[in-house]
């Protein structure tokens, strides 16, 4: 029960955090050029965005959940199980961020998800 709860916190925390940061970065807009001056201005704009700061604690929460899970369960269970975040993240991208996820992208995401699980199982 506790494992399921913390695994959910890990998956939904990391996905929620990354989705919030994505929304923040989209609102920030891309840097005009990839040069130091423009990158510093870009970073300044990003750090003033509320969505960015909404994402940071969610990611911290998921990191804490990962540490707790690693203290209870073997890494060969935790990392493959957390690979589900690729699927949850893609669902979030489609329904929350409104991204168009094609069949090819879905197939790629599922292959990556299974691949990460297999690599982690060793």
């Amino acid at each position: 029960m506790h494992v399921t709860l913390f695994l959910s916190l890990l998956i939904f925390g990391s996905t929620g955090g990354e989705i919030a940061i994505t929304r923040g970065m989209k609102a920030t807009g891309e840097p005009e050029r990839l040069r130091p001056k423009e990158m510093l201005q870009f970073l300044g704009r990003a750090l003033c965005n509320g969505w960015f700061w909404a994402g940071v604690p969610l990611m911290a929460l998921s990191f804490y959940a990962l540490l707790v899970l690693l203290s209870w369960e073997p890494i060969s269970f935790v990392i493959p199980a957390s690979a589900l975040s690729y699927v949850v993240g893609t669902l979030g991208a489609k329904y929350i961020l409104g991204e168009d996820v094609s069949a090819a992208r879905w197939a790629g995401v599922v292959l990556v998800c299974v691949g990460v699980a297999l690599v982690a199982l060793g």
């Binding site: 090819a104 790629g108 292959l111 699980a117 297999l118 690599v119 199982l121």
Partner: peptide
């Protein structure tokens, strides 16, 4: 098993990369 995982990741990334 890990090599199979690596191949799946590479194919998956190639598929996503084409979108």
């Amino acid at each position: 098993r890990r090599w199979v995982g690596v191949v799946l990741i590479c194919v998956g990334v190639l598929l996503v990369g084409q979108t």
